Simulated scan of single mutants.
Amino acid sequence: MTMADAQIRDFEKRVRQIDRRHNKLARGYVHLVERDGLLVPEEASFKSRGFPLRAILLALIGFVLFKAIIVSQVGLSSYASRLENLAEGGAVEQAGAWLMQIDPLTLAVAEFIAGLF
Rank of each mutant, 00 (worst) to 15 (best):
T2Q: 02
M3I: 14
A4L: 11
A4K: 05
D5S: 07
A6S: 13
A6T: 06
D10L: 10
D10W: 06
F11V: 03
E12C: 06
V15C: 03
R16S: 14
I18C: 08
D19E: 08
R21A: 05
H22R: 08
N23H: 05
Y29S: 05
V30K: 12
V33I: 12
E34W: 08
R35Q: 15
G37I: 01
V40D: 08
P41N: 08
P41S: 07
P41H: 05
P41I: 02
A44F: 15
K47A: 08
R49Y: 03
G50K: 05
P52E: 02
P52S: 02
L60F: 08
K67P: 02
V71K: 01
S72V: 00
Q73H: 10
V74D: 00
L76D: 03
L76E: 09
A87V: 02
E88W: 07
G89R: 08
G89I: 03
G89H: 03
G90K: 01
G90E: 07
G96R: 09
M100V: 11
P104I: 00
L105R: 02
L105S: 07
V109R: 02
A110N: 00
E111K: 07
F112I: 15
I113R: 01
A114N: 08
G115F: 00
L116I: 09
F117Y: 12
